[in-house]
Nucleic acid binder design. Structure first.
Length: 640
DNA sequence: TCACGGAATATTTTT
DNA sequence: TATTCCGTGA
C-alpha cells in the first residue's frame, strides 16, 4: 500500500485524491508537479482503473517516460500501460488508424521542421517568387509564419499584419506559397508537425462517431504543462473529455513561455470557464530554492498583469541574496563568470551543478571562447541535434521512400546526392519517376542522359536489393549505409565522425521490427541530442561540465548556482518585444523561469553597454524587470 | 545547370 | 558559431 498522506503535502494530497470532474492544478516552480501527477496515476491504477483508459498527455517524450516510470516504481508495471505520450505521438497513433477518413493514406510521412523549410524553399524557387529580393523572408521565417498561422488559428494575412508588418509587400506571394505548400503535402502524403494536430482535431470534429469511439476509451484525461497548449490542443482536450468531464490539467501560468509557437496562456487562465465546476488547487510550497531566491522571484512575477495569484514559499533555510552584477562590457561579463566558477569549484561546487542561462543562442559566444581559453569544460544544450545532421537525414530518406513512395522530399534529397544532379535535375527525374508509376519501380524505368547513367545505376541497384518484406530494418539500413559511404566521404571532411553516427543509427534500428514505427519515432520521438559517439571521442563522458543553455531549454531543470547573462534592457527584454504588451509579459515570465532554476545562488549579469544594430541605440540600463526590485531582495554590485 | 567559396546575418523551439 | 544566400567559373 502506498502511504499517500506521508509522501505528499496537503495540496498535493488533495490533487492526488481528487476523483471525478474537472480539476486545475496550478503548480508553482519547483512545487512537485511531476510528483503529483505520478501519484495520481498510481492511485487510479491502484484503485482498479484500467491503465489503458487513463490518458496522460505531455509535451515531451521525456516527461511522459519519467512519469510512467516513477508511477511504476511506486506501484507496479501496470502503470507502463497508461495511454498517451506526447500530443503529437498520440495524434499520430490515431491518424494512422483513421487516415482514410481525411483523404490521407495511413502510410503518410511525417516531415520535420527542416523538411518543411526545404520544401517551402523549393516551391519558392519553382514558382519564381521573390527572386533576388533581399527583403523577401528567409525560408526559416516563412516556416515560422505558416506554422504560426496554423497554431494561432489565424489567417496568414493577420499574422503578417500583426507580427510581420515589414512583409506586407510580399503578402500575395506568401499566400500563394502557403497554398502550394499545403497542396503539395496533400498530394504526396506528407504531414508536418502541425498537421498531426490539425488533422487529429478535424477527425474529432468532423466525425462525431469516431470522436465518440475514441473519447469513450479514455475515462480519465490528464494534461501536463497546460500553460503551453495552443488553441488546437485545448480543443482536442475538450472534444476528448467534454462529455465525462474527468479532466485534470496541471501547469503554471507564470511559466508560459511559448506564445511564439502558438501557446495560449488563456487556456489555463480560462480553464474554469471552459469546464464549469472546476476545482482549483494551488501548489505553493517550493522544494527547490532558498527563501531569498523565492523572495526575489515572487517580486519579479508580481509585475505580471494577468495571472493566478500565488506566493511561493520555501522551508529551505539560509542562502544569500541574489545579486545583479554590472560589468563594463561583454568580455568582462564572461570573465566575471569564469572567476566566479573558479571560486565555486574551490568551495566544492561541481561544474554540473552550475548553469549559465541566456535569452538567445548567440548570447553565449563570447563566454564560450573565454571558457575554452580557461579550459573549463561545458555543454551547450539545445544546439545541435543528432536527427538534424545531414548524413542521418540522407540515410533516412532512402528508408522513407520505401515506406511512402510518394514522399517527394525524400526523393529530392536522395537524387540531389548524385553527382551532377542539382535542383533542376532532381525535379526532372522525380517527375519522370512519378509518371512511370512512382516509387523505385518508377525510378527503374526513368531514361537518363548518359552522363548521369553511372551514378543512377548504383542507386537503382541499391533499391533492387532492398526488400522490406524479407529484410529487417537494420539490414535495410546496412545496405543503404554501404551505398552511402562513398557519397559521405566525398562530401564531408569530417566523415569519420559522421560514420560513427551512422553506426549509432544502425544500432537504433536493431530495436525496431516495424519500418513505420521506426520512421515515426525518428520524426517525433527522436533519440536525445547527445547521442554517445558524438561527444565521447576518447575522453570519458564526464558529467562534470558546466551547462550553457537558452532559458527555453532550461525549463523544468535546476542547478545549485545559476547565472543569467545579458540582463540588459534591450537584450532581455529583447528590443523587438518592447512595443507589444503581451510580448513584454512573456519576456517577464521568461525571466521568472530563468530565476526559479536556482537552488542556492543566483546571479544576474549585465554588461555596461552594448550597441543594438537594429535600432542604432546604445543599451546601458539593466533589465526593466530588475530595476524596481527593492534593495533587500536584490544586491547590486559593480566590477569596473 | 552545377559546384564551390566568401560574405552577411542572427530570438526563443518540447513536436 | 553556423547557416544561408549570391556570384563566379566550368
Amino acid at each position: 500500500m502506498i502511504d499517500y498522506k506521508k509522501h505528499l503535502n496537503t495540496s498535493q494530497y488533495e490533487a492526488v485524491k481528487f476523483d471525478k470532474g474537472p480539476l486545475l492544478v496550478i503548480a508553482g516552480a519547483g512545487s512537485g508537479k511531476t510528483r503529483t501527477l505520478t501519484y495520481r496515476v498510481a492511485r487510479l491504477v491502484d484503485e482498479g482503473v484500467p491503465p489503458k483508459s487513463i490518458l496522460l498527455l505531455t509535451f515531451t517524450r521525456k516527461a511522459s517516460h519519467e512519469m510512467l516510470q516513477r508511477a511504476s516504481n511506486l506501484l507496479d508495471d501496470r502503470c507502463e500501460n497508461v495511454s498517451g505520450g506526447t500530443f503529437h505521438s498520440f495524434a499520430n497513433t490515431m491518424l494512422r488508424r483513421y487516415a482514410g477518413y481525411l483523404g490521407y493514406n495511413s502510410s503518410f510521412t511525417i516531415i520535420d521542421r527542416a523538411d518543411m523549410e526545404n520544401l517551402i524553399a523549393t516551391l519558392k524557387k519553382e514558382m519564381r517568387l521573390g527572386e533576388k529580393d533581399r527583403s523577401f523572408p528567409k525560408k526559416n521565417t516563412m516556416a515560422s509564419l505558416f506554422s504560426r498561422s496554423i497554431n494561432k488559428v489565424k489567417p496568414l494575412e493577420d499574422i503578417i499584419y500583426d507580427d510581420y508588418p515589414h512583409f506586407t509587400t510580399h503578402m500575395d506571394a506568401l499566400g500563394q506559397l502557403y497554398a502550394a505548400y499545403d497542396t503539395h503535402k496533400n498530394r504526396h502524403n506528407l504531414m508536418d508537425y502541425d498537421d498531426l494536430l490539425v488533422n487529429f482535431h478535424r477527425l474529432l470534429k468532423e466525425f462525431p462517431d469516431i470522436r465518440q469511439e475514441i473519447a469513450s476509451t479514455f475515462k480519465f484525461v490528464m494534461v501536463d504543462e497546460y500553460q503551453d497548449t495552443n488553441q488546437i490542443q485545448a480543443d482536442i482536450i475538450y472534444l476528448l473529455s467534454g462529455e465525462h468531464g474527468n479532466i485534470m490539467v496541471v501547469g503554471d501560468d507564470s511559466q508560459s513561455i511559448y506564445a511564439f509557437r502558438g501557446a495560449e496562456i488563456r487556456n489555463i487562465l480560462s480553464f474554469p470557464d471552459c469546464f464549469p465546476g472546476t476545482t482549483v488547487i494551488r501548489l505553493e510550497e517550493n522544494y527547490r530554492s532558498v527563501q531569498p531566491i523565492l523572495h526575489l522571484t515572487n517580486q519579479i512575477i508580481d509585475q505580471a498583469a494577468y495571472k493566478y495569484t500565488k506566493t511561493l514559499f520555501s522551508r529551505k533555510k539560509g542562502g544569500s541574496c541574489p545579486c545583479l552584477m554590472r560589468t563594463s562590457d561583454e568580455n568582462s561579463q564572461s570573465r566575471f563568470i569564469v572567476d566566479k566558477i573558479r571560486d565555486l569549484s574551490l568551495q566544492g561546487v561541481r561544474l554540473n551543478r552550475i548553469a549559465v542561462l541566456f535569452r538567445a543562442g548567440f548570447h553565449s559566444f563570447d563566454l564560450e571562447i573565454e571558457l575554452g581559453r580557461e579550459g573549463i569544460p561545458f555543454v551547450k544544450v539545445g544546439g545541435f541535434k543528432f536527427m538534424d545532421s545531414a548524413h542521418i537525414k540522407d540515410v533516412l530518406a532512402h528508408l522513407k521512400v520505401i515506406h511512402n513512395p510518394d514522399d517527394s522530399i525524400s526523393w529530392y534529397r536522395i537524387l540531389l546526392l548524385l553527382e551532377k544532379v542539382g535542383p533542376k535535375g532532381a525535379a526532372q527525374m522525380f517527375n519522370d519517376l512519378q509518371k512511370k508509376g512512382g516509387g523505385y519501380q518508377g525510378l527503374a524505368q526513368v531514361k537518363l542522359r548518359p552522363a548521369l547513367a553511372g551514378s543512377v545505376e548504383r542507386l537503382k541497384s541499391l533499391f533492387s536489393v532492398l526488400t522490406p518484406e524479407t529484410m529487417t530494418i537494420a539490414a535495410l539500413g546496412e545496405r543503404i549505409v554501404d551505398y552511402y559511404l562513398p557519397i559521405l566521404k566525398n562530401r564531408f571532411d569530417d566523415h569519420p565522425r559522421r560514420e560513427r553516427d551512422l553506426e549509432q543509427l544502425l544500432s537504433i534500428m536493431e530495436r525496431y521490427g516495424d519500418l513505420e514505427a521506426f520512421l515515426t519515432d525518428m520524426a517525433i520521438e527522436p533519440p536525445s541530442a547527445s547521442i554517445e559517439g558524438t561527444f565521447s571521442t576518447g575522453e570519458s563522458i564526464d558529467e562534470s561540465r558546466l551547462t550553457l543553455s537558452t532559458i527555453h531549454s532550461a525549463k523544468g531543470l535546476e542547478w545549485h548556482t545559476v547565472f543569467i547573462i545579458w540582463t540588459l534592457d534591450g537584450r532581455f527584454p529583447a528590443m523587438r518585444s518592447l512595443h507589444k504588451e503581451d510580448e513584454i509579459e512573456e519576456e517577464l515570465r521568461l525571466m521568472y523561469v530563468a530565476a526559479t532554476r536556482a537552488e542556492e545562488n543566483l546571479f544576474f549579469v549585465c554588461p555596461g553597454q552594448a550597441y543594438d544594430r537594429a535600432t542604432g541605440l546604445i543599451l546601458n540600463r539593466p533589465s526593466r524587470f530588475l530595476e524596481h526590485i527593492p534593495e533587500d531582495a536584490l544586491d547590486i554590485r559593480y566590477t569596473f
